Computed example of a mutant assay.
Amino acid sequence: MRLPNNFPTICYHHHPPSYYFFYFYYSHKLLSPPPFSPFPSTKLAAARRTSFTAAAASRRHRRVDFCLHHEQQQQQQKVVVIMGATGSGKSKLSIDLATRFFATEIVNSDKMQVYCGLDITTNKIPMRDRRGVPHHLLGDVRHPDTLAPADFRRLAASAISGIASRHKLPLVVGGSNSFIYALAVKHFDPESDVFRDSDPDPVSTQLRYDCCFIWVDVAMPVLDQYLCKRVDEMLDSGMVDELGDYFGSDPGPSRGGLGKAIGVPEFEAYFRKFGGGSSRGGDGVGGGTKEWKGDDPVRRAVYEEAVRAIKDNTCQLSMRQVGKIERLRRAGWHLQRLDATAAFEAAMAGGATAAIWERQVMEPSVKIVKRFLAERCKGRWQFWPMKWLAGEDD
């Protein structure tokens, strides 16, 4: 019997490949034993046929397009985590993986993007760029208080369970390492702080999930240059109009939750002095960056100071995020680093970036995830679609 070319050899455990092929096929399609024997005519083969028929009758719900992985006794759900500094391309990579290779759903782990509102200021991925990939905890939280890591752990775990029940791969994506740590560790203490600057608590290496950590990294000078450019693009896209509505809302802006997003405290002095609301300044100015600056030198100076602070604080945030990732790696977390610097340098120079991104980020990521899915998990029997392992596109 000739097996399909894409039948993964990782399925071979205690039996030849033909055993698994017929096992899947007849447990899914037929109610009776195979019309001919896939095994040699021996006493051992006869015993196998008997066992094969009984197993097929009791497992008719198993589908032929799933590859069986034998695991150990305690289950661990497989989860892919894409981490990195703000602006490093995490969202792009997650959408590329989800739409081109793997059936996934994405769980956001950015502590500002979990809140509803300020989509431009928090740089949420637009709906058109999500390309139909389901996202969880992206703009879902509406209460004004700060979402604690323990609360995120509970909400994200629920989302992951739902994704797994639909036989899809959970993909956790975001730059908030305190959220990623709270979600991933087996025993999380809400009172602990492993990222504290002075005398931090020990980092746990016992994880509740079987995790594949992909770290998208960009050289800091290049990333800083890109982040400043991105702030200018956000301003041109209506960020100040959005903040004007936020500060002009009734009741006033919260100092917790979304009120901590970069852009809100920086522009607070501007809107306190010149007003805001309904995308218009207190003196009727509104509708664009030039209009928000105005002709008044004082107004322009306050505006430019706010923009300068946003750029500085964004670059400082990226540096802190990389420091936290390095701490996790030094503690023993297996983080697989991908260097996207060349793609960002090409983007800043106005050159073609697609080929560089494909070669240096996309292709290595696909190999990492395929190898991760092909590994035996630490749990019960688990099923993964064969095309994920064989490299077939959707």
Rank of each mutant, 00 (worst) to 15 (best):
I310T: 14
A309Y: 07
F267T: 00
G286S: 02
G276W: 03
G281N: 00
C212M: 11
A269L: 11
R299E: 00
V222W: 05
K273P: 04
D217F: 06
V285H: 11
S318N: 09
A269M: 06
P221F: 14
R299M: 08
R272H: 06
G286R: 00
E304Q: 08
F247W: 11
R320C: 04
V302F: 11
G256M: 12
L243W: 02
R320W: 03
I262G: 03
W215V: 03
E266Q: 15
G248Q: 10
V240E: 05
T289M: 14
G259C: 10
G252K: 10
R308C: 13
V231A: 11
G275S: 01
A301Y: 02
L328I: 04
R300K: 09
E266N: 01
V218W: 10
A301I: 00
T289R: 15
C212A: 07
V222Y: 08
K311M: 13
D312C: 02
D296Q: 12
W292G: 02
R327I: 00
G287D: 08
G263N: 01
E326L: 07
W292L: 00
V285Q: 12
M319H: 14
V216W: 03
C315I: 10
K229W: 10
G248S: 10
G284L: 09
E242I: 09
K229M: 10
G244A: 15
K229H: 12
Q225C: 13
G277A: 12
C315E: 10
I325D: 03
L235C: 00
V264T: 04
L258P: 04
G284M: 06
E266Y: 02
G256C: 07
K324E: 13
Y209Q: 05
V322P: 05
E291M: 13
M319F: 14
D241M: 05
Q316G: 12
G276N: 04
I325K: 03
G256L: 07
Y209K: 05
G256D: 11
G256S: 14
K273G: 08
P265W: 09
V231L: 14
G257Y: 08
W292R: 03
E242H: 12
G238K: 14
A219E: 11
V231Q: 04
G259D: 01
Y270L: 10
W215Q: 09
G256V: 08
V240F: 07
K229Y: 07
V218R: 09
R308M: 09
M220Q: 15
M234T: 00
E291S: 15
E268D: 06
D250K: 15
C211K: 08
E326D: 09
G244W: 04
S279P: 02
G244D: 09
V285G: 13
D245F: 04
E233V: 09
G284R: 07
D296C: 14
S254M: 01
A261L: 00
D245S: 15
R280T: 11
V307N: 02
V264I: 03
F267M: 03
R272L: 06
L258N: 06
K324G: 01
C212T: 07
A219M: 07
R299P: 01
G248L: 09
R308Y: 10
D283H: 11
E266K: 04
T314S: 13
D245E: 11
S249N: 13
L227G: 07
P253G: 10
D295I: 06
S318A: 15
K293E: 13
S249C: 12
S237Y: 11
T289S: 13
G287Y: 04
V240T: 06
G281L: 00
V307Y: 04
Q225K: 15
K293C: 14
F247L: 10
K293G: 02
R280P: 01
